[in-house]
Design a protein around this nucleic acid. Structure first.
Lengths: 229, 229
DNA sequence: TTAATTAATCCAACATCGTTGAACAAATGA
DNA sequence: TCATTTGTTCAACGATGTTGGATTAATTAA
């Protein structure tokens, strides 16, 4: 157990469970630490923006920044159940395979899929990980996460990066991404972000053979998605 | 800047902004740390319950525990505006002084008040700090925070603690606290908790002279409060 | 199934970085 | 005004996290 990590959270928990406006001394006493120790932690937390001091009295409070770390309330486990009818509907209307993908660091994986009842159809493995580049789904994740986009850019040439940024911008404007035989010959794919509380928590994708699943069909599915979501 | 504190949040922020399901290696690479260093942090965070590992793949995610530190969305600054009409109404109906108090560690202070237009009335300073014990408002804070209650108990005799716990229990049952000439002779006070998302974020208090502001009047105000909140 | 590869975990010596206490400054109260 | 409490600063010490390499486990390829 990393001591200062534990102390960090001891301090934060103390602040949180004592009205979110507390004195250095009270924390120190309650946790059995030196004032100056607690003070140092608070200075660091303040620099990082996780705590701030009261304007009137020298008291500390936790700021809203901690919220970016809070995923509670996001229905991860409920995601399949929630979006299953959506992708089933998309497959029903398009007669192509639809997917539900979630981000895993620099990769994504399919959590769920729905295949149409026809012989020639796209079929990809659930659970397996895919690279972000060259896939419609990956590009959506990248477009909505500059951080991810930068990571993926590493090692690319100047011109490739410019092209990528341009495409990201376009995806943000349109609200969806396309993969026109980029990942694989004869394969078309369209991907749309799914948000929860302003956070992108999954991406819905639709894949079909290029000859029958063209831009027109894909755009139609985007429209449909937006009406049923 | 305490290094491990910064690293702790760097890691958490990385996880949070990369889909909340990431590998040790990706974190290490992105932050320029050793795998083992990151791993040690994750072990500690896991022990504290702030992260957990995916069931299928060895990936880490932030848990819901961080939520207890998240005060965003709690209308602290908006509190006065929200509850001002409430305490004004209470004063109007009771013809006594009402207060809006917030916790500050082991103390509380009045954020706002409303005094009736009559000569004999209770008047207490805004901003000043008050002890939790022997005040109705303090007892409400204590009743809803075992942690605070324990802290305040320190140094009390066995019998005093028993008496206090009994009163706390009663307050929880009733949903309000009374101070019958306990803080000061001839002074009666009733206090009611105000919750937001299951958290007690402030306490409303009403004070009046004992001879005219008795238990009956106080209970009546509690009923009123519950209807207008 | 075995080999090869990658990822995760463990370990012990080292050096960094947080801790300590005392002294100082600022705020509060008498 | 002085006395008291509380918050902040500082430098030397020593606890504790870091490092790289070795080990183990999990994947992937053959």
């Amino acid at each position: 157990m990393i001591q200062s990590l534990k102390r960090t959270f001891d301090i934060l928990e103390y602040i949180a469970s004592n009205g979110n406006l507390v004195r250095v001394n009270d924390i120190a006493q309650a946790l059995g630490l030196q004032k100056t120790t607690v003070h140092n932690f608070l200075v660091s937390l303040k620099q990082l923006g996780y705590v701030e001091q009261d304007e009137v009295t020298p008291r500390y409070r936790i700021t809203a920044k901690i919220n970016q770390l809070d995923f509670s309330g996001i229905p991860y486990y409920d995601l399949r159940n929630k979006l299953k009818p959506v992708i089933e509907r998309l497959t029903l209307e398009s007669n192509e395979t639809s997917f539900l993908a979630i981000q895993m660091g620099n990769y994504f994986r399919y959590e769920w899929k729905c295949e149409p009842a026809r012989s020639l159809r796209i079929s990809l493995e659930l659970g397996k990980e895919f690279e972000m580049r060259h896939t419609a789904i990956g590009k959506v994740f990248m477009a909505y996460s500059p951080h991810l986009s930068n990571t993926v850019s590493k090692g690319l040439s100047e011109s490739e990066i410019i092209a990528q940024n341009k495409e990201m911008k376009q995806i943000l404007e349109r609200g969806y991404a396309l993969d026109l035989e980029e990942y694989e010959k004869e394969l078309h794919c369209v991907a749309i972000p799914y948000f929860y509380k302003n956070r992108i928590i999954s991406v819905i994708g639709l894949s079909g053979p290029a000859h029958r699943f063209g831009e027109k069909e894909m755009q139609h599915m985007v429209q449909l998605f937006k009406t049923i979501i």
